[in-house]
Design a protein around this nucleic acid. Structure first.
Length: 108
DNA sequence: ATTTTGACTATGT
DNA sequence: AACATAGCCAAAA
């Protein structure tokens, strides 16, 4: 398990209910500004064995980034449960829901 | 070792 | 707003 992976997992765990973060944002906080795709892989691999709020991670355009229809609907449902408004089945207002961590990744 | 493949992103039309 | 294109980067083939 790499340092980066641990950072990413800790950060994702810190996203509060009703808030979202983008892949790139998480990668940057974890210390790798271009590691967005790594975040994707980590989510895919770890969201089952670790308890992660995977549904609170979306892409930089403010959309649910998963193409597979059933899983996309599941993510939308989970977010709506937390009070996040979803438009067009997949769009989310980053203005309203993006979570910004205070300070840097150091205090993880 | 080389190529392909993504739940990505920034930038330019 | 919607495409295209270029970078990106580690895992899998």
């Amino acid at each position: 398990m790499t340092h980066f992976t641990e950072r990413v997992i800790k950060i994702i765990r810190k996203i509060p209910e009703g808030k979202v973060m983008t892949y790139g944002q998480i990668a940057a906080y974890a210390g790798s500004p271009r590691g967005a795709r790594q975040v994707v892989r980590i989510l895919h691999a770890m969201s089952k064995k670790y308890q992660l709020p995977w549904h609170r991670v979306i892409n930089a355009k403010g959309e649910i980034s998963i193409m597979e229809d059933e899983a996309c609907q599941m993510q939308a449902f989970l977010l709506q449960t937390e009070g996040v408004e979803i438009t067009n089945g997949r769009h989310i207002s980053l203005e309203r829901y993006r979570f910004e961590m205070e300070g840097t990744e150091d205090r993880l």
